[in-house]
Simulated assay, not measured.
Amino acid sequence: MRRWLALLVAATTSLVLIALLVPMALLVRAVAENGAMGRATTTAESVALSPDPELSAQRASLPVEVIRRVTPQSSDAVRLAALGRSVTAEADEGRQVLTSVQSPQGTVVISVFVSEQELRRGVYEAWVALLVLGLALVVLGIVLADRLARRLVGPISELAGVSHRLAGGDLEARATPGGPPELRSVALALNHLAGRIGDLLAAERESVADLSHRLRTPLTGLRLDAEALRDREEAARIAARVDDLERAVSSIINDARHHERAQTSCDAAAVVGDRVRFWSVLAEDQEREVTVELPQGRVQVAVAAADLAAAVDALLGNVFAHTPEGTAFSVRLTPDGRLSVHDEGPGFDAALLERGSSGAGSTGLGLDIVRRTAEASGGSMRLSKQGVELLLGR
Rank of each mutant, 00 (worst) to 15 (best):
258 H>R: 09
268 A>H: 04
246 E>P: 05
191 N>C: 12
342 H>P: 00
319 V>I: 09
67 I>S: 01
131 L>K: 04
52 D>V: 07
126 A>S: 14
279 W>M: 10
266 C>P: 00
131 L>Y: 07
179 G>M: 00
35 G>D: 15
180 P>N: 10
147 R>I: 02
392 L>E: 08
93 E>L: 07
277 R>Q: 15
255 D>T: 07
309 A>L: 06
264 T>N: 01
140 L>D: 02
360 A>D: 15
388 V>Q: 00
270 A>F: 03
87 V>F: 06
142 I>V: 15
253 I>P: 01
74 S>D: 09
257 R>A: 12
312 V>E: 02
348 F>A: 13
376 A>V: 04
342 H>E: 04
158 E>F: 03
218 P>L: 12
320 F>L: 13
176 T>W: 11
33 E>F: 04
238 I>H: 07
315 L>A: 04
63 P>E: 12
292 V>Q: 15
376 A>M: 01
95 R>C: 11
307 D>I: 07
91 A>N: 07
293 E>T: 08
81 A>W: 01
55 L>C: 07
357 S>R: 13
262 A>D: 14
393 G>V: 04
158 E>A: 11
28 V>Y: 08
216 R>T: 15
141 G>C: 08
370 V>C: 06
301 V>H: 00
148 L>F: 13
156 I>N: 04
65 E>K: 09
207 S>R: 14
355 R>G: 06
25 A>Q: 12
118 E>A: 13
114 V>A: 02
281 V>N: 06
21 L>W: 03
79 R>I: 07
380 S>L: 04
92 D>I: 08
231 D>L: 05
151 R>W: 01
107 T>D: 10
160 A>P: 09
1 M>G: 11
390 L>H: 02
136 A>I: 02
89 A>G: 01
77 A>N: 04
368 D>L: 02
362 S>H: 14
280 S>A: 12
375 E>T: 08
282 L>Y: 01
371 R>F: 05
50 S>H: 11
160 A>H: 12
383 L>N: 12
1 M>I: 08
50 S>V: 00
197 I>F: 15
126 A>W: 03
113 F>D: 05
378 G>Q: 12
176 T>Y: 05
180 P>I: 08
107 T>W: 10
133 L>W: 05
43 T>G: 01
211 L>P: 00
154 G>F: 03
160 A>F: 05
343 D>T: 03
265 S>M: 03
52 D>M: 02
220 T>A: 15
198 G>K: 10
97 V>P: 01
323 T>A: 07
183 L>S: 05
60 A>V: 00
314 A>F: 07
